[in-house]
């Protein structure tokens, strides 16, 4: 029974996005991906939610600035398990063009485990969609179900 529920559950990933100091290019592309008819993430059962408590897949954009670091960590903690973290854009990976700045904290994966990286500046909506699909696979693995 619980195995069946788990299998069904990955088909309903709800997304939550955290902007950790991005130049909003990635955020605009996320909005585009999510909401415009051409890409339509709803066909994967995705939905953007307003509360971290409802989220399954968290999309993080931007180099993590000092001021956002604690807030990112706090929000990330509020997301119930099991959750999948997707880093969107080059910034959370390495700081991108902003690397070496005094105002940045650490790369995201020093702070929290990142499951999927979607590089790009900003990534194309198609790349973000692929990131979400990959996140579903990782979610399955976290639930202990084989892909298939």
């Amino acid at each position: 029974m619980s195995n069946l529920l788990n299998k069904l559950s990955v088909r309903s990933p709800w997304l939550f996005r955290i902007n950790a100091g991005s130049c909003n290019g990635c955020d605009v592309e996320l909005a585009t991906t999510a909401l415009i008819p051409r890409f339509d993430v709803e066909r994967f059962g995705c939905r953007y939610c307003g509360s971290p408590r409802h989220a399954d897949v968290v999309l993080i954009t931007g180099p993590v600035t000092l001021k956002m670091r604690d807030k990112v960590l706090k929000l990330w903690d509020e997301i119930p398990n099991p959750k999948v973290t997707v880093a969107v854009g080059i910034c959370p990976i390495s700081g991108g063009v902003f690397r070496d700045s005094y105002s940045l904290a650490e790369p995201l994966d020093h702070l929290i485990p990142v499951d999927v990286n979607v590089p790009g500046c900003p990534p194309r909506p198609q790349a973000i969609l692929e990131g979400v699909v990959l996140a579903k696979k990782i979610w399955m693995r976290k639930l202990g179900i084989e892909e298939g």
Binding site: N6, S9, P37, E42, R43, P82
Partner: peptide
């Protein structure tokens, strides 16, 4: 109406199934 594909018809069931597997905070 919005010229999208939309979710599969079983989606509300999936949503509820998913919520049941999540931890309660």
């Amino acid at each position: 109406v919005q010229r999208r594909v939309g979710p599969p018809l079983i989606q509300p069931v999936l949503d509820i199934a998913k919520l049941l597997t999540k931890e309660t905070l």
